[in-house]
């Protein structure tokens, strides 16, 4: 998720009662909130319904949010709370009572939200990898294939698979943790030579 929406945008949409602008804010936060809700609820349509309800509540009540980070915190917390309420109403609570209780604590929720944001960030970065590199990484991490299996599927050598994995991780780390120091063309060339060699 790149960029943040500030409270101003939300305030403007609410003050002007502009449904299109408000739906734009919904679109911006949807991936993060959806990935959070899906961790609690196996059913995607219930997860989406909960996110809609949170936004409709904001549309109706126009709560005052004091600082800019407040909006995202408010949204994440509201989605988590509604998911937990939903689970409580169902039988699942009786089975996972302790588990759900501990997962409603603030420290857990904030770590969890941070993790989901990072996952979205990684996902975005994967989309930007060179095609071959992306394919190898996908088969390994999404599908859980072993290197020899990936090599067989793509018709390349195991060594190439290993090299591609290495390049993928290197690019991902730079993109995610050190975005201010993009690769110089020199190091990119070096990477390319490494891959070929």
């Amino acid at each position: 998720m790149t960029g943040e929406i500030h409270n101003d945008a939300v305030r403007q949409a609410l003050t002007a009662r502009d449904p299109d602008a408000f739906a734009g804010i919904y679109r911006h936060y949807f991936p993060l909130l959806f990935s959070i809700a899906r961790k609690y609820l196996p059913d995607g349509s219930t997860a989406e319904e909960i996110i809609q309800d949170v936004f409709l509540h904001i549309w109706e009540t126009a709560p005052v949010l004091e600082y800019d980070a407040a909006l995202k915190n408010y949204l994440c917390r509201a989605v988590v709370n509604r998911c937990l309420n939903h689970l409580k109403r169902n039988e699942m609570l009786r089975r996972h009572h302790a588990e759900i209780f501990s997962s409603s604590e603030d420290s857990y929720v904030s770590t969890f939200v941070e993790e989901q944001e990072l996952r979205l960030c990684i996902h975005e970065a994967i989309e930007k990898l060179p095609p071959k590199c992306r394919e190898v990484f996908r088969l390994s991490r999404f599908e859980g294939l072993k290197n020899p299996e990936i090599a067989a599927q793509l018709g390349i050598s195991v060594k190439t698979v290993e090299n591609q994995m290495t390049i993928a991780l290197k690019l991902l780390r730079t993109h995610i943790f050190h975005p201010s120091s993009p690769f110089s063309s020199k190091s990119r060339t070096r990477m390319w030579l490494f891959f070929v060699g």
């Binding site: 739906a23 919904y26 679109r27 991936p31 996110i51 994967i126």
Partner: peptide, 26 residues
Amino acid sequence: LSAGIGELSGIDAEAAARRFRARLPQ
């Protein structure tokens, strides 16, 4: 964190926003 991250590919925020938009006033 990248294990099973493929599930995120299925999230269509555009379509979700359209569904939400339908619940707001015209």
